[in-house]
Design a binder for these strands. Sequence first.
DNA 1: ACATAATATGCCTTGACAGGAATATTCCTG
DNA 2: CAGGAATATTCCTGTCAAGGCATATTATGT
Lengths: 112, 112
Amino acid sequence: MNATFSALAEPNRLQIVELLRHRPLPVGGIAHRLRMRQPQVSKHLRVLSEAGLVQVRPVAQQRIYGLRAEGLKELDDWLEGYRRLWGERFEQLDDVLSDLQQEKGNTNGNRK
Amino acid sequence: MNATFSALAEPNRLQIVELLRHRPLPVGGIAHRLRMRQPQVSKHLRVLSEAGLVQVRPVAQQRIYGLRAEGLKELDDWLEGYRRLWGERFEQLDDVLSDLQQEKGNTNGNRK
DNA sequence: ACATAATATGCCTTGACAGGAATATTCCTG
DNA sequence: CAGGAATATTCCTGTCAAGGCATATTATGT
Protein backbone atom coordinates (compact mmCIF):
# COMPACT_ATOMS: atom_id res chain seq x y z
CA MET A 1 0.00 0.00 0.00
CA ASN A 2 2.84 2.28 0.88
CA ALA A 3 4.55 1.46 -2.40
CA THR A 4 1.38 2.57 -4.13
CA PHE A 5 1.36 5.98 -2.52
CA SER A 6 5.03 6.67 -3.03
CA ALA A 7 4.75 5.61 -6.64
CA LEU A 8 1.91 8.04 -7.24
CA ALA A 9 3.57 10.79 -5.21
CA GLU A 10 5.94 11.60 -8.05
CA PRO A 11 4.23 14.14 -10.35
CA ASN A 12 5.54 12.63 -13.59
CA ARG A 13 4.55 9.19 -12.48
CA LEU A 14 1.06 10.38 -11.67
CA GLN A 15 0.92 11.93 -15.12
CA ILE A 16 1.89 8.63 -16.68
CA VAL A 17 -0.89 6.85 -14.83
CA GLU A 18 -3.41 9.44 -15.92
CA LEU A 19 -2.20 9.16 -19.46
CA LEU A 20 -2.50 5.39 -19.45
CA ARG A 21 -6.03 5.71 -18.20
CA HIS A 22 -7.13 6.36 -21.75
CA ARG A 23 -5.19 3.62 -23.48
CA PRO A 24 -2.02 1.52 -23.17
CA LEU A 25 1.04 3.02 -24.80
CA PRO A 26 4.62 2.10 -25.67
CA VAL A 27 7.44 3.80 -23.78
CA GLY A 28 8.27 6.11 -26.66
CA GLY A 29 4.66 7.21 -26.97
CA ILE A 30 4.54 8.12 -23.31
CA ALA A 31 7.81 10.02 -23.52
CA HIS A 32 6.63 11.94 -26.55
CA ARG A 33 3.29 12.97 -25.12
CA LEU A 34 4.57 13.96 -21.72
CA ARG A 35 7.67 15.65 -23.11
CA MET A 36 9.92 13.46 -21.05
CA ARG A 37 13.12 11.71 -21.96
CA GLN A 38 12.92 8.01 -22.61
CA PRO A 39 15.27 6.85 -19.83
CA GLN A 40 13.25 8.70 -17.21
CA VAL A 41 10.07 7.19 -18.52
CA SER A 42 11.56 3.72 -18.32
CA LYS A 43 12.66 4.35 -14.75
CA HIS A 44 9.27 5.65 -13.73
CA LEU A 45 7.57 2.72 -15.37
CA ARG A 46 9.81 0.42 -13.41
CA VAL A 47 8.65 1.96 -10.16
CA LEU A 48 5.02 1.87 -11.20
CA SER A 49 5.46 -1.72 -12.24
CA GLU A 50 7.00 -2.74 -8.94
CA ALA A 51 4.10 -1.04 -7.20
CA GLY A 52 1.77 -3.21 -9.26
CA LEU A 53 0.11 -0.23 -10.88
CA VAL A 54 1.18 -1.03 -14.41
CA GLN A 55 1.74 -4.07 -16.59
CA VAL A 56 3.73 -4.71 -19.75
CA ARG A 57 3.12 -6.53 -22.96
CA PRO A 58 6.02 -6.87 -25.40
CA VAL A 59 5.23 -6.31 -29.07
CA ALA A 60 8.27 -6.52 -31.32
CA GLN A 61 10.86 -4.21 -29.82
CA GLN A 62 8.32 -2.09 -28.08
CA ARG A 63 6.81 -2.69 -24.68
CA ILE A 64 3.23 -1.65 -24.29
CA TYR A 65 2.47 -0.38 -20.83
CA GLY A 66 -1.05 -0.29 -19.50
CA LEU A 67 -2.73 0.15 -16.16
CA ARG A 68 -3.10 -2.87 -13.92
CA ALA A 69 -6.57 -3.08 -12.46
CA GLU A 70 -5.61 -4.87 -9.26
CA GLY A 71 -3.13 -2.17 -8.31
CA LEU A 72 -5.73 0.57 -8.36
CA LYS A 73 -8.38 -1.62 -6.83
CA GLU A 74 -6.06 -2.07 -3.90
CA LEU A 75 -6.18 1.68 -3.39
CA ASP A 76 -9.94 1.58 -3.68
CA ASP A 77 -10.14 -1.12 -1.05
CA TRP A 78 -7.96 0.86 1.28
CA LEU A 79 -10.31 3.79 0.97
CA GLU A 80 -13.19 1.57 1.95
CA GLY A 81 -12.33 2.01 5.60
CA TYR A 82 -12.74 5.76 5.28
CA ARG A 83 -15.91 6.07 3.25
CA ARG A 84 -18.05 6.43 6.34
CA LEU A 85 -16.30 9.74 6.94
CA TRP A 86 -18.26 11.77 4.42
CA GLY A 87 -22.01 12.14 4.30
CA GLU A 88 -22.35 11.30 7.96
CA ARG A 89 -22.04 13.50 10.99
CA PHE A 90 -20.30 11.61 13.73
CA GLU A 91 -17.55 12.07 16.28
CA GLN A 92 -19.45 14.42 18.57
CA LEU A 93 -17.69 16.85 20.81
CA ASP A 94 -18.48 14.73 23.84
CA ASP A 95 -16.64 11.78 22.41
CA VAL A 96 -13.55 13.87 21.85
CA LEU A 97 -13.62 15.27 25.35
CA SER A 98 -13.96 11.85 26.92
CA ASP A 99 -11.01 10.69 24.85
CA LEU A 100 -8.96 13.44 26.37
CA GLN A 101 -9.28 11.89 29.78
CA GLN A 102 -7.49 8.81 28.52
CA GLU A 103 -4.56 10.89 27.44
CA LYS A 104 -3.53 11.98 30.91
CA GLY A 105 0.10 11.16 31.44
CA ASN A 106 0.62 9.96 27.91
CA THR A 107 2.04 13.23 26.71
CA ASN A 108 5.14 14.70 25.21
CA GLY A 109 6.26 11.88 23.00
CA ASN A 110 8.26 9.86 25.46
CA ARG A 111 9.14 6.77 23.52
CA LYS A 112 8.34 3.36 24.98
CA MET B 1 -4.14 15.78 -5.61
CA ASN B 2 -0.40 15.45 -5.82
CA ALA B 3 -0.07 16.87 -2.33
CA THR B 4 -2.39 14.12 -1.15
CA PHE B 5 -0.25 11.35 -2.56
CA SER B 6 3.03 12.74 -1.33
CA ALA B 7 1.54 13.28 2.11
CA LEU B 8 0.42 9.66 2.29
CA ALA B 9 3.64 8.39 0.75
CA GLU B 10 5.51 8.84 4.01
CA PRO B 11 5.08 5.66 6.12
CA ASN B 12 4.74 7.45 9.43
CA ARG B 13 2.23 9.85 7.98
CA LEU B 14 0.18 6.99 6.63
CA GLN B 15 0.28 5.43 10.06
CA ILE B 16 -1.01 8.64 11.60
CA VAL B 17 -3.91 8.71 9.17
CA GLU B 18 -4.76 5.11 9.91
CA LEU B 19 -4.57 5.81 13.61
CA LEU B 20 -6.87 8.81 13.35
CA ARG B 21 -9.34 6.68 11.46
CA HIS B 22 -10.57 5.34 14.78
CA ARG B 23 -10.79 8.61 16.69
CA PRO B 24 -9.29 12.10 16.87
CA LEU B 25 -6.25 12.43 19.09
CA PRO B 26 -3.96 15.10 20.54
CA VAL B 27 -0.38 15.30 19.32
CA GLY B 28 1.02 13.65 22.40
CA GLY B 29 -1.41 10.78 22.10
CA ILE B 30 -0.33 10.13 18.55
CA ALA B 31 3.35 10.31 19.46
CA HIS B 32 2.86 7.90 22.33
CA ARG B 33 0.94 5.30 20.37
CA LEU B 34 3.16 5.35 17.32
CA ARG B 35 6.37 5.54 19.34
CA MET B 36 7.43 8.70 17.60
CA ARG B 37 8.91 11.87 19.00
CA GLN B 38 6.62 14.81 19.41
CA PRO B 39 8.43 17.20 17.03
CA GLN B 40 8.23 14.70 14.17
CA VAL B 41 4.57 14.17 14.81
CA SER B 42 3.96 17.90 14.72
CA LYS B 43 5.83 18.19 11.45
CA HIS B 44 3.96 15.30 9.90
CA LEU B 45 0.67 16.73 11.03
CA ARG B 46 1.61 19.99 9.41
CA VAL B 47 2.10 18.25 6.08
CA LEU B 48 -1.12 16.31 6.44
CA SER B 49 -2.90 19.50 7.33
CA GLU B 50 -1.57 21.37 4.31
CA ALA B 51 -2.71 18.47 2.18
CA GLY B 52 -6.17 18.90 3.63
CA LEU B 53 -6.22 15.42 5.10
CA VAL B 54 -6.41 16.47 8.71
CA GLN B 55 -8.00 19.19 10.80
CA VAL B 56 -7.30 20.63 14.23
CA ARG B 57 -9.38 21.67 17.17
CA PRO B 58 -7.66 23.37 20.09
CA VAL B 59 -8.69 22.24 23.55
CA ALA B 60 -6.76 23.88 26.34
CA GLN B 61 -3.09 23.49 25.44
CA GLN B 62 -3.68 20.45 23.40
CA ARG B 63 -4.61 20.33 19.76
CA ILE B 64 -6.90 17.54 18.76
CA TYR B 65 -6.20 16.27 15.29
CA GLY B 66 -8.78 14.36 13.33
CA LEU B 67 -9.30 13.25 9.77
CA ARG B 68 -10.82 15.70 7.36
CA ALA B 69 -13.51 14.08 5.24
CA GLU B 70 -13.11 16.28 2.17
CA GLY B 71 -9.43 15.42 1.85
CA LEU B 72 -10.07 11.73 1.58
CA LYS B 73 -13.14 12.19 -0.53
CA GLU B 74 -10.94 13.98 -3.01
CA LEU B 75 -8.91 10.81 -3.32
CA ASP B 76 -12.09 8.83 -3.73
CA ASP B 77 -13.25 11.14 -6.51
CA TRP B 78 -9.93 10.80 -8.28
CA LEU B 79 -10.32 7.04 -8.24
CA GLU B 80 -13.72 7.41 -9.86
CA GLY B 81 -12.10 7.72 -13.27
CA TYR B 82 -10.46 4.33 -12.80
CA ARG B 83 -13.25 2.23 -11.40
CA ARG B 84 -14.24 0.96 -14.83
CA LEU B 85 -10.88 -0.83 -14.89
CA TRP B 86 -11.84 -3.75 -12.71
CA GLY B 87 -14.69 -6.12 -13.40
CA GLU B 88 -14.70 -5.38 -17.08
CA ARG B 89 -12.61 -6.81 -19.84
CA PHE B 90 -11.75 -4.11 -22.32
CA GLU B 91 -8.80 -2.84 -24.36
CA GLN B 92 -8.62 -5.75 -26.75
CA LEU B 93 -5.41 -6.69 -28.47
CA ASP B 94 -6.67 -5.21 -31.73
CA ASP B 95 -7.07 -1.81 -30.14
CA VAL B 96 -3.53 -1.88 -28.91
CA LEU B 97 -2.18 -2.89 -32.29
CA SER B 98 -4.03 -0.12 -34.06
CA ASP B 99 -2.66 2.33 -31.54
CA LEU B 100 0.80 1.25 -32.45
CA GLN B 101 0.35 2.57 -35.93
CA GLN B 102 -0.10 6.04 -34.52
CA GLU B 103 3.21 5.82 -32.78
CA LYS B 104 5.28 5.66 -35.94
CA GLY B 105 7.97 8.31 -35.78
CA ASN B 106 7.07 9.36 -32.28
CA THR B 107 9.76 7.29 -30.69
CA ASN B 108 12.86 7.61 -28.56
CA GLY B 109 11.85 10.42 -26.29
CA ASN B 110 12.89 13.40 -28.38
CA ARG B 111 11.44 16.29 -26.51
CA LYS B 112 9.15 18.77 -28.21
C1' DA C 1 3.64 36.99 37.08
C1' DC C 2 5.76 32.11 37.41
C1' DA C 3 6.16 27.34 36.73
C1' DT C 4 4.64 23.84 33.90
C1' DA C 5 2.25 21.25 30.24
C1' DA C 6 1.46 20.68 25.26
C1' DT C 7 2.83 21.82 20.91
C1' DA C 8 5.34 24.20 17.18
C1' DT C 9 9.66 25.76 14.92
C1' DG C 10 14.46 26.22 13.60
C1' DC C 11 18.89 24.37 12.46
C1' DC C 12 21.72 20.73 11.09
C1' DT C 13 23.01 16.33 9.10
C1' DT C 14 22.22 12.39 6.29
C1' DG C 15 19.93 9.36 3.01
C1' DA C 16 16.85 8.70 -0.86
C1' DC C 17 15.66 9.77 -5.24
C1' DA C 18 14.94 12.29 -9.77
C1' DG C 19 17.24 14.02 -13.77
C1' DG C 20 21.08 14.02 -17.30
C1' DA C 21 24.05 11.64 -20.38
C1' DA C 22 26.18 7.63 -22.01
C1' DT C 23 25.91 2.85 -22.74
C1' DA C 24 24.01 -1.87 -22.67
C1' DT C 25 20.34 -4.96 -24.17
C1' DT C 26 16.81 -6.86 -27.03
C1' DC C 27 14.42 -7.52 -31.15
C1' DC C 28 13.46 -6.92 -35.91
C1' DT C 29 14.82 -6.57 -40.96
C1' DG C 30 17.55 -6.90 -44.98
C1' DC D 1 25.09 -11.20 -39.15
C1' DA D 2 25.20 -6.14 -39.71
C1' DG D 3 22.49 -2.17 -38.72
C1' DG D 4 19.06 0.19 -36.62
C1' DA D 5 14.97 0.86 -33.63
C1' DA D 6 12.97 0.63 -28.98
C1' DT D 7 13.87 0.17 -24.38
C1' DA D 8 16.55 -0.77 -20.11
C1' DT D 9 20.47 0.11 -17.14
C1' DT D 10 24.41 2.42 -15.08
C1' DC D 11 26.95 6.16 -13.09
C1' DC D 12 27.02 10.70 -11.52
C1' DT D 13 25.28 14.87 -9.37
C1' DG D 14 22.15 17.99 -7.01
C1' DT D 15 18.09 18.55 -4.34
C1' DC D 16 14.77 17.77 -1.00
C1' DA D 17 12.85 15.96 2.95
C1' DA D 18 12.92 13.18 7.39
C1' DG D 19 15.03 12.68 11.93
C1' DG D 20 17.42 14.43 16.04
C1' DC D 21 17.85 17.97 19.21
C1' DA D 22 17.32 22.40 21.19
C1' DT D 23 14.37 26.10 21.71
C1' DA D 24 10.34 29.09 20.95
C1' DT D 25 5.36 29.52 21.59
C1' DT D 26 0.93 29.15 23.64
C1' DA D 27 -2.16 28.06 27.31
C1' DT D 28 -3.17 26.74 32.21
C1' DG D 29 -3.28 26.95 37.15
C1' DT D 30 -1.72 29.04 41.40
